[in-house]
Design a protein around this nucleic acid. Structure first.
Lengths: 140, 140
DNA sequence: CTAGACCCGTGATCCAGGTCTAGAGTCAAG
DNA sequence: CTTGACTCTAGACCTGGATCACGGGTCTAG
């Protein structure tokens, strides 16, 4: 086991993970990161585990989880048995939400694409299908 | 031409368009709606044109335009010649942005879907592919 | 020892797009 | 004339996810 107690400053952690110092302190306040050990001076002192946890947070964020959800994922991942099931559930919920969002955007895209296609790009405003669609009563 | 000077209160407009009174005043402050005529009492007095313009705004918002962009669209739609060309351009830009966003979300969805599939939903946290993916180095 | 880089906590600020509050005036029905 | 619904303004507040500012303490290379 590799339990060297590397003692990193907040700045070093920030640099290694590619995140701002303020963000780390913010995550700590928000309960996404545990309160770290302090040096005599009051400086936060981090180990490698924090790096991993920060990366976890960043990746989950990239997957569209909110910080609230990530806080929950972190709690679940610590639960040795029931955690996995709940984690999978959350991931499935997230997946469903993303698919819903994609479908919405596709509808919007289709509508907009049709308008763009049908607009000649010149002429009077009253004849522009885009402006007409935005102004007229009859829209979906 | 149908130029009855229907005089609507802000509340009536809000109800007909399905938007909050505060939102109308907010749009006015933000320059999306012109300053309306006032009654002697100071009450705002709107005509049918405002209804149309508010619907324009709402639809454009549904298409993902920001208020800033909508302000521009409104200005362009008033420009009798060059407006149409510019409007089409903006719509194309919006379309491209939406397509980009869809592609991003699809990447995220695919990644997440794969993780969900590969997770049995039970067992130790260390063996959960979802948690592993979030924690491990090798991602993306 | 000192300069410069780093860190501390607390609280303010930012973004968009509204939403809400307070206190006062106005309108329409009964 | 009263009551209750409506409107007025100015400004504060909200969400999420940070980011910045302030005034001060600490660490390290030279």
């Amino acid at each position: 086991m590799n339990t060297q107690h590397t003692s990193l400053t907040i700045g070093a952690v920030a640099k290694r993970v590619g995140v701002a110092i303020d963000t780390i302190r913010y995550y700590e306040r928000e309960g996404l990161l545990p309160e770290p050990v302090r040096r005599a001076s009051g400086y936060r002192s981090y180990g490698e585990g924090t790096i991993a946890q920060l990366r976890f947070i960043r990746r989950a964020k990239d997957l569209g989880f909110t910080l609230e959800e990530i806080r929950e994922l972190l709690a679940l991942s610590a639960d040795r048995q029931r955690g996995v099931k709940a984690v999978k559930q959350r991931a499935q919920q997230r997946l469903a939400a993303i698919e819903l969002r994609i479908a919405e955007l596709q509808r919007v895209r289709d509508g907009l694409a049709q308008l763009v296609e049908s607009c000649p790009g010149h002429g009077k405003p009253e004849e522009c299908p885009i402006l007409r669609a935005l102004s007229d009563e009859a829209v979906s």
